[in-house]
């Protein structure tokens, strides 16, 4: 009889079969929660200027972003570094007030004064475009702005 019986081991090994499931669950969680970008860029990713005196932008929900740079679709929008993108459309400076008012409607009244407009402009774009945007922002009283820049190392 004992010939056919398997030899019993002293300690049964811990069943690790469910370990991959746990890890996959974590993996999926991270894959789902990390959003790559809320709006897809119609512009080429602007190469931001660098500055040393940068401040971090807090409260992402209170930040509206205006992109300025070169269009990906040169045939449709024209060349040059002065295309403006609001939400996911190429627009002009004239559309900025509407964009700001629209983003204001998404937050509560009390938070409106803390709203910041982040201008992500390519370093090769022209000051004229930025100034046009700035004048429009002033018209709608969106006075807090942040010129997006990467942190440079102080030398």
């Amino acid at each position: 009889m004992s010939k056919f019986r398997k030899k019993k081991k002293g300690m049964p090994a811990v069943n690790t079969a469910s370990l991959p499931d746990i890890v996959f669950m974590l993996l999926f969680f991270f894959m789902v929660t990390t959003t790559m970008r809320e709006t897809d860029l119609k512009l080429e990713n602007p190469s931001l200027p660098s500055a040393t005196e940068v401040k971090k932008l807090e409260h992402k929900s209170l930040v509206s972003t205006i992109y300025v740079g070169k269009s990906k679709d040169v045939a449709r929008h024209g060349a040059g570094f002065n295309r403006i993108q609001l939400n996911d459309k190429i627009a002009t400076a004239e559309d900025v007030p509407a964009f700001i008012i629209n983003s204001r409607s998404k937050v509560s009244e009390a938070e409106v004064p803390f709203m910041t407009t982040s201008i992500k402009a390519d370093k090769e774009s022209n000051v004229g475009t930025i100034i046009d945007i700035r004048l429009k922002l002033r018209d709608v009283n969106a006075l807090k702005i942040s010129y997006s820049a990467s942190k440079a190392v102080d030398n």
Partner: peptide, 22 residues
């Protein structure tokens, strides 16, 4: 998992802040 953890940057927006005059 580690690959995704490392590659996803939580890109924090930073910039030169400025207050416009009214």
């Amino acid at each position: 998992l580690i690959f995704f953890l490392v590659t996803t940057t939580m890109n924090v927006d930073s910039g030169v802040s400025k207050k416009l005059s009214e």
